[in-house]
Design a protein around this nucleic acid. Structure first.
Length: 230
DNA sequence: CTGAAGATCTACT
DNA sequence: GTAGATCTTCAGA
Protein backbone atom coordinates (compact mmCIF):
# COMPACT_ATOMS: atom_id res chain seq x y z
CA UNK A 1 0.00 0.00 0.00
CA UNK A 2 1.21 3.49 -0.79
CA UNK A 3 1.96 6.20 1.67
CA UNK A 4 -0.10 9.35 2.03
CA UNK A 5 0.88 12.40 -0.08
CA UNK A 6 2.40 15.67 1.03
CA UNK A 7 -0.95 17.46 0.89
CA UNK A 8 -2.29 15.13 3.59
CA UNK A 9 -0.01 16.84 6.12
CA UNK A 10 -0.50 20.45 5.00
CA UNK A 11 -3.37 21.19 7.33
CA UNK A 12 -3.66 22.69 10.82
CA UNK A 13 -2.34 20.47 13.61
CA UNK A 14 -5.77 19.78 15.11
CA UNK A 15 -6.96 18.58 11.76
CA UNK A 16 -3.92 16.41 11.14
CA UNK A 17 -4.22 14.93 14.63
CA UNK A 18 -7.74 13.70 13.80
CA UNK A 19 -6.81 12.70 10.30
CA UNK A 20 -3.91 10.52 11.44
CA UNK A 21 -6.16 8.38 13.63
CA UNK A 22 -6.60 5.00 11.99
CA UNK A 23 -3.68 5.50 9.63
CA UNK A 24 -0.77 3.09 9.80
CA UNK A 25 2.74 4.06 10.78
CA UNK A 26 5.26 1.83 9.02
CA UNK A 27 8.86 1.51 10.09
CA UNK A 28 11.32 -0.34 7.90
CA UNK A 29 14.02 -1.97 10.04
CA UNK A 30 16.27 -4.11 7.91
CA UNK A 31 14.04 -6.61 6.17
CA UNK A 32 11.19 -6.13 8.65
CA UNK A 33 8.32 -3.71 8.27
CA UNK A 34 6.89 -2.89 11.68
CA UNK A 35 3.34 -1.62 11.41
CA UNK A 36 1.09 0.06 13.94
CA UNK A 37 -2.29 1.66 13.61
CA UNK A 38 -2.32 5.17 15.05
CA UNK A 39 -4.95 5.20 17.81
CA UNK A 40 -4.00 8.31 19.81
CA UNK A 41 -2.52 11.72 18.96
CA UNK A 42 -2.04 15.20 20.38
CA UNK A 43 -1.95 18.51 18.53
CA UNK A 44 0.63 21.20 19.34
CA UNK A 45 -0.71 24.24 17.62
CA UNK A 46 2.12 26.73 17.44
CA UNK A 47 3.59 29.91 18.86
CA UNK A 48 0.50 30.82 20.87
CA UNK A 49 0.28 27.36 22.48
CA UNK A 50 1.92 27.43 25.91
CA UNK A 51 2.31 23.65 25.83
CA UNK A 52 4.21 23.65 22.57
CA UNK A 53 7.99 23.57 22.16
CA UNK A 54 7.68 26.45 19.70
CA UNK A 55 5.72 28.60 22.14
CA UNK A 56 6.34 32.32 21.59
CA UNK A 57 8.40 31.59 18.51
CA UNK A 58 11.14 29.70 20.28
CA UNK A 59 13.48 28.03 17.81
CA UNK A 60 16.36 25.94 19.11
CA UNK A 61 18.46 23.05 17.81
CA UNK A 62 16.04 20.64 19.42
CA UNK A 63 12.78 21.94 17.96
CA UNK A 64 14.10 23.18 14.63
CA UNK A 65 12.42 20.29 12.79
CA UNK A 66 9.04 21.77 13.73
CA UNK A 67 9.78 24.57 11.27
CA UNK A 68 10.36 22.15 8.40
CA UNK A 69 7.76 21.26 5.78
CA UNK A 70 4.67 19.26 6.65
CA UNK A 71 5.24 15.52 6.67
CA UNK A 72 8.63 15.81 8.36
CA UNK A 73 9.27 13.74 11.49
CA UNK A 74 10.10 15.72 14.64
CA UNK A 75 11.75 13.38 17.15
CA UNK A 76 13.17 14.57 20.45
CA UNK A 77 14.71 13.08 23.58
CA UNK A 78 13.16 13.70 26.98
CA UNK A 79 13.34 12.70 30.64
CA UNK A 80 16.86 11.46 30.09
CA UNK A 81 15.67 8.23 28.52
CA UNK A 82 12.75 8.49 26.12
CA UNK A 83 12.08 9.63 22.59
CA UNK A 84 8.84 11.15 21.35
CA UNK A 85 7.79 11.31 17.72
CA UNK A 86 5.76 14.05 16.07
CA UNK A 87 4.58 14.64 12.53
CA UNK A 88 5.00 18.22 11.34
CA UNK A 89 1.78 19.84 10.08
CA UNK A 90 0.81 23.18 8.57
CA UNK A 91 2.96 25.31 6.33
CA UNK A 92 6.70 25.57 5.98
CA UNK A 93 8.14 27.73 8.79
CA UNK A 94 4.95 27.32 10.79
CA UNK A 95 6.03 25.34 13.88
CA UNK A 96 3.05 23.06 14.48
CA UNK A 97 3.09 19.29 14.93
CA UNK A 98 1.18 16.22 16.06
CA UNK A 99 2.56 13.92 18.75
CA UNK A 100 1.95 10.20 18.21
CA UNK A 101 0.86 8.84 21.59
CA UNK A 102 -0.20 5.26 20.93
CA UNK A 103 -0.32 2.57 18.25
CA UNK A 104 -2.05 -0.75 17.86
CA UNK A 105 0.55 -3.25 16.62
CA UNK A 106 -0.68 -4.93 13.44
CA UNK A 107 1.09 -8.27 13.59
CA UNK A 108 0.18 -11.79 14.60
CA UNK A 109 1.43 -12.92 17.96
CA UNK A 110 4.58 -14.92 17.41
CA UNK A 111 5.43 -13.17 14.13
CA UNK A 112 8.98 -11.94 13.59
CA UNK A 113 7.67 -8.37 13.62
CA UNK A 114 5.92 -8.66 16.95
CA UNK A 115 8.88 -10.43 18.48
CA UNK A 116 11.15 -7.62 17.29
CA UNK A 117 8.92 -5.09 19.04
CA UNK A 118 8.88 -7.15 22.22
CA UNK A 119 12.64 -7.51 22.17
CA UNK A 120 13.03 -3.76 21.76
CA UNK A 121 10.61 -3.01 24.58
CA UNK A 122 12.01 -5.46 27.07
CA UNK A 123 10.35 -7.47 29.83
CA UNK A 124 8.01 -4.69 30.94
CA UNK A 125 5.86 -5.26 27.86
CA UNK A 126 4.38 -8.71 28.18
CA UNK A 127 1.13 -8.12 26.35
CA UNK A 128 0.77 -6.75 22.82
CA UNK A 129 -1.25 -3.87 24.24
CA UNK A 130 1.77 -2.74 26.29
CA UNK A 131 4.11 -2.44 23.32
CA UNK A 132 3.05 0.92 21.92
CA UNK A 133 0.59 2.46 24.41
CA UNK A 134 2.60 5.61 25.09
CA UNK A 135 4.75 8.08 23.15
CA UNK A 136 8.02 6.77 24.56
CA UNK A 137 6.95 3.16 24.25
CA UNK A 138 6.03 3.31 20.59
CA UNK A 139 9.37 4.89 19.74
CA UNK A 140 11.18 2.16 21.62
CA UNK A 141 9.11 -0.58 19.97
CA UNK A 142 9.71 0.76 16.47
CA UNK A 143 13.34 1.71 16.95
CA UNK A 144 12.63 5.42 16.53
CA UNK A 145 15.39 7.61 17.93
CA UNK A 146 17.11 10.91 17.25
CA UNK A 147 18.44 9.55 13.96
CA UNK A 148 14.82 9.69 12.72
CA UNK A 149 14.53 13.41 13.40
CA UNK A 150 13.84 15.33 10.17
CA UNK A 151 12.99 12.22 8.17
CA UNK A 152 10.64 13.05 5.32
CA UNK A 153 7.68 10.71 5.70
CA UNK A 154 6.62 11.54 2.14
CA UNK A 155 9.79 10.02 0.76
CA UNK A 156 8.97 6.83 2.61
CA UNK A 157 12.45 5.43 3.00
CA UNK A 158 12.63 4.00 6.50
CA UNK A 159 9.39 5.35 7.87
CA UNK A 160 6.09 6.43 6.33
CA UNK A 161 2.35 6.56 6.91
CA UNK A 162 -0.35 4.68 5.02
CA UNK A 163 -3.98 5.80 4.78
CA UNK A 164 -6.66 4.26 6.93
CA UNK A 165 -8.86 1.63 5.41
CA UNK A 166 -12.07 1.92 7.38
CA UNK A 167 -14.11 3.72 8.36
CA UNK A 168 -13.70 7.01 6.55
CA UNK A 169 -14.79 9.05 9.55
CA UNK A 170 -14.28 7.07 12.76
CA UNK A 171 -15.66 8.06 16.14
CA UNK A 172 -13.09 10.00 18.09
CA UNK A 173 -12.49 10.62 21.79
CA UNK A 174 -11.32 14.10 22.77
CA UNK A 175 -9.65 15.34 25.93
CA UNK A 176 -6.89 17.47 27.41
CA UNK A 177 -3.30 16.68 26.58
CA UNK A 178 -1.23 14.47 28.87
CA UNK A 179 1.83 15.39 30.91
CA UNK A 180 1.84 19.15 30.53
CA UNK A 181 3.00 20.96 33.63
CA UNK A 182 1.26 23.92 35.13
CA UNK A 183 0.45 26.64 32.67
CA UNK A 184 -2.48 28.72 31.70
CA UNK A 185 -5.58 26.57 32.02
CA UNK A 186 -6.59 27.66 28.55
CA UNK A 187 -3.76 25.60 27.12
CA UNK A 188 -3.34 22.98 29.81
CA UNK A 189 -6.98 21.94 29.45
CA UNK A 190 -7.45 22.56 25.74
CA UNK A 191 -9.12 19.58 24.03
CA UNK A 192 -6.18 18.70 21.82
CA UNK A 193 -5.80 14.99 22.60
CA UNK A 194 -7.58 12.61 20.26
CA UNK A 195 -8.18 8.86 20.30
CA UNK A 196 -10.06 6.27 18.32
CA UNK A 197 -13.28 5.40 20.14
CA UNK A 198 -13.79 1.92 18.70
CA UNK A 199 -13.75 -1.04 21.06
CA UNK A 200 -10.89 -2.64 19.14
CA UNK A 201 -8.71 0.42 19.54
CA UNK A 202 -9.42 1.29 23.16
CA UNK A 203 -7.16 -1.28 24.83
CA UNK A 204 -4.22 0.29 23.00
CA UNK A 205 -4.70 3.84 24.28
CA UNK A 206 -2.05 5.23 26.62
CA UNK A 207 -4.70 6.21 29.19
CA UNK A 208 -8.47 6.32 29.22
CA UNK A 209 -10.23 9.48 28.15
CA UNK A 210 -12.07 10.98 31.10
CA UNK A 211 -15.58 12.09 30.38
CA UNK A 212 -15.90 9.95 27.25
CA UNK A 213 -16.53 12.93 25.06
CA UNK A 214 -17.08 11.40 21.67
CA UNK A 215 -17.53 12.97 18.29
CA UNK A 216 -17.05 12.44 14.62
CA UNK A 217 -13.47 12.77 13.45
CA UNK A 218 -14.34 15.46 10.93
CA UNK A 219 -16.42 17.51 13.27
CA UNK A 220 -14.99 20.90 14.11
CA UNK A 221 -14.17 21.52 17.73
CA UNK A 222 -17.22 22.49 19.73
CA UNK A 223 -17.68 26.20 19.65
CA UNK A 224 -17.02 27.78 23.02
CA UNK A 225 -20.12 29.47 24.34
CA UNK A 226 -18.30 31.87 26.58
CA UNK A 227 -14.74 33.00 26.38
CA UNK A 228 -12.75 32.08 29.47
CA UNK A 229 -11.41 35.16 31.21
CA UNK A 230 -7.78 35.43 32.14
C1' DC B 1 28.47 28.05 33.69
C1' DT B 2 24.77 26.37 36.52
C1' DG B 3 20.49 24.57 37.77
C1' DA B 4 15.86 23.18 37.02
C1' DA B 5 12.49 21.04 34.32
C1' DG B 6 10.89 17.85 31.21
C1' DA B 7 4.87 16.26 25.49
C1' DT B 8 7.77 9.43 30.26
C1' DC B 9 8.07 4.82 32.03
C1' DT B 10 8.79 1.24 35.43
C1' DA B 11 8.76 -0.78 39.75
C1' DC B 12 7.26 -0.90 44.09
C1' DT B 13 4.09 0.08 48.23
C1' DG C 1 -0.63 6.08 43.92
C1' DT C 2 4.16 7.61 44.13
C1' DA C 3 9.14 7.71 43.69
C1' DG C 4 13.20 7.13 41.15
C1' DA C 5 15.70 6.72 36.92
C1' DT C 6 18.60 9.54 33.91
C1' DC C 7 20.49 13.29 30.98
C1' DT C 8 19.55 16.71 27.40
C1' DT C 9 18.07 21.17 26.77
C1' DC C 10 17.51 25.85 27.72
C1' DA C 11 17.09 30.20 30.28
C1' DG C 12 19.28 33.04 33.15
C1' DA C 13 23.28 34.70 35.61
Amino acid sequence: MSHVPQSFYEVPAQRLARRLLGCVLVRQLGSLQLRGRIVETEAYVGVQDAGCHSFSGRRTPRNDAMYAKAGTAYVYFTYGMHYCMNVVAGKQEEPVAVLLRALEPLHESGSAELRAMQAARGPAAKRARDLCNGPGKLCQALGIDIACNRLDLCRGETMWIEPRATPATPKVLVGPRIGLGTMEPRWRDAPLRFGLASEEARPFLSKPFAGEHEENSRAPKPKPRARRKR
